[in-house]
Lab assay of single mutants.
Amino acid sequence: DRYEFNINGVHFTIDDAEEELIKLIEELLKRGARAEEIEEVIRRWER
Rank of each mutant, 00 (worst) to 15 (best):
H11S: 13
A33H: 05
T13R: 08
E19S: 09
K23P: 02
W45A: 02
E20N: 07
E40P: 02
A35S: 08
R2G: 07
R2C: 07
K30F: 15
E18A: 12
E37K: 05
E20H: 05
R34Q: 15
D16W: 14
L21I: 07
R47C: 07
R31M: 13
A35T: 10
R31A: 10
E19G: 10
L29E: 02
I42L: 10
W45Q: 01
G32I: 01
A17E: 04
R44I: 11
R34T: 15
D16V: 12
N6H: 12
L28V: 06
L21C: 03
E37T: 07
V10T: 09
G32W: 05
L24W: 06
G9R: 00
I25F: 02
E20V: 06
E26D: 08
L24Y: 09
R43D: 05
V41Y: 09
E39Y: 12
L24K: 11
I25K: 00
I22F: 04
R43I: 08
I38T: 01
E36M: 08
Y3W: 12
E36C: 06
R44D: 09
K23Y: 12
E27C: 15
H11E: 10
G32Y: 08
E19M: 09
L28M: 13
K30R: 12
F5H: 01
R43S: 08
A17V: 06
R2K: 10
F12G: 01
V41H: 06
I14S: 02
E20C: 06
L29H: 03
Y3E: 01
T13F: 13
R47N: 10
E37I: 06
I38F: 08
E39L: 14
E39D: 07
E4C: 09
D16N: 15
R44N: 13
E39P: 01
G32S: 09
G32Q: 10
R31I: 11
I14V: 08
A17F: 05
D16P: 13
R31N: 11
E20Q: 07
R2A: 08
N8P: 02
D16Q: 13
T13V: 14
R2T: 08
L21F: 05
F5I: 08
F5C: 03
K30G: 10
E39K: 11
E20W: 10
I25Y: 00
R43L: 13
R31K: 13
L24S: 09
E26V: 13
Y3S: 01
I7L: 08
E36H: 08
N6I: 13
D1C: 15
E20M: 08
E46S: 07
F5V: 06
H11M: 14
I22C: 02
I42T: 02
R43H: 15
I14W: 03
H11I: 15
L21A: 01
E36L: 06
I22R: 05
V10F: 08
R43V: 09
I7N: 03
V10M: 11
R34L: 11
D15S: 07
K30C: 07
R34N: 14
E37M: 07
R34D: 13
K30L: 14
E4F: 03
D15R: 03
Y3R: 02
K23D: 08
G32D: 08
V41T: 10
I14E: 00
E19D: 11
Y3G: 02
D1L: 15
E46D: 11
E19P: 15
E40R: 06
R34G: 15
F5Y: 05
T13N: 05
D1A: 12
L29C: 03
L29D: 02
A35Y: 10
A33T: 09
E18Y: 04
A35K: 11
E46T: 10
R43C: 08
I14G: 01
R2M: 08
R31F: 14
E19C: 10
A35E: 07
H11G: 07
E20K: 07
A17R: 04
I42N: 01
R44Y: 14
D1F: 10
D16L: 11
I22Q: 03
I38K: 00
R34P: 13
E27Q: 13
T13C: 12
I7E: 02
T13W: 12
R2N: 06
H11Q: 14
D1R: 15
R47E: 06
I38S: 00
R31Q: 09
Y3H: 04
A35D: 03
D1K: 15
I14Q: 01
N8E: 12
E40F: 10
E26C: 09
H11L: 14
I22H: 02
V10Q: 10
I38D: 00
R43E: 05
Y3N: 02
L21Q: 03
E37N: 04
E40G: 05
I38M: 07
R44C: 15
I14D: 01
E4R: 03
D15Y: 13
N6E: 14
D16H: 14
I22N: 01
I42E: 00
I22M: 05
E27L: 15
L21R: 00
E19R: 05
W45V: 01
V10N: 05
I38V: 13
L21T: 02
W45S: 01
N6T: 15
E19H: 10
R2S: 09
E18Q: 12
